[in-house]
Simulated scan of single mutants.
Amino acid sequence: MNGMSDVRLALHSQELEAAQERTLSMPGETRWSLFRRRRHTRKALLTLTREQLLDVGLTAEQARHEGLKPFWRD
């Protein structure tokens, strides 16, 4: 590897760490608690009625798309 590649890898690594810290939005939240929260909220989206979805501003298709995403995906 040349020096430029090393710099790019270091910067990319820092960007990934910063993005991960932003994702863990609740104080003291671990990666696993984030995954549990995502799983819980996504499963809940699949059970909402059309009126409840309207209240939160989502269509049934949007809720289904988000609800079926794996917990590890942002």
Rank of each mutant, 00 (worst) to 15 (best):
T23N: 02
R37L: 06
M4V: 06
W72L: 11
L58N: 03
G67W: 01
L24A: 00
T59C: 07
R37V: 03
T59Y: 03
D55L: 14
R73Q: 14
V7Q: 07
P27A: 03
L54M: 12
L16P: 01
N2C: 09
L34G: 02
A44I: 10
W72F: 05
A18S: 03
L24G: 00
E29I: 01
L11P: 01
L9R: 04
L45I: 08
K69Q: 10
E21S: 05
S25M: 02
S33P: 04
S13A: 11
V7E: 08
R39F: 09
Q14F: 07
G28P: 01
M4F: 06
F35C: 01
H12V: 09
M4C: 02
E21D: 13
G57L: 13
A18F: 02
Q62A: 15
K43E: 13
H40I: 13
D74Q: 08
L48Q: 12
N2T: 05
T41W: 14
V56W: 04
A18T: 04
M26C: 04
E15C: 14
T49S: 15
R73F: 11
L9T: 00
A18N: 07
L45Q: 00
Q20V: 05
A44L: 14
A10D: 10
G3V: 12
R64H: 10
H12P: 06
H40S: 14
K43W: 14
T30E: 01
R64V: 02
W72E: 10
Q52R: 03
L16D: 12
G28W: 03
H65E: 09
R50V: 14
E21V: 15
T23E: 15
E29V: 02
W32I: 06
T49L: 13
E66G: 02
E17R: 12
T23P: 01
L9E: 04
R36L: 14
L54C: 15
W32Y: 10
E21N: 06
F35D: 07
M1V: 06
L46H: 02
L11E: 06
R38M: 05
L58A: 04
L45P: 04
R42W: 04
L68W: 05
G67S: 06
L9P: 00
E17Y: 03
L54Y: 11
P27L: 14
D6Y: 08
E15Q: 08
R42M: 08
Q14D: 11
K43V: 13
H12G: 14
S33M: 15
D74C: 05
P70E: 15
H12R: 09
Q62C: 11
F35I: 14
H12K: 03
H40L: 15
T49G: 15
E29S: 01
Q52W: 00
E29D: 00
E15G: 10
Q62P: 01
Q52S: 03
Q62K: 12
P27E: 08
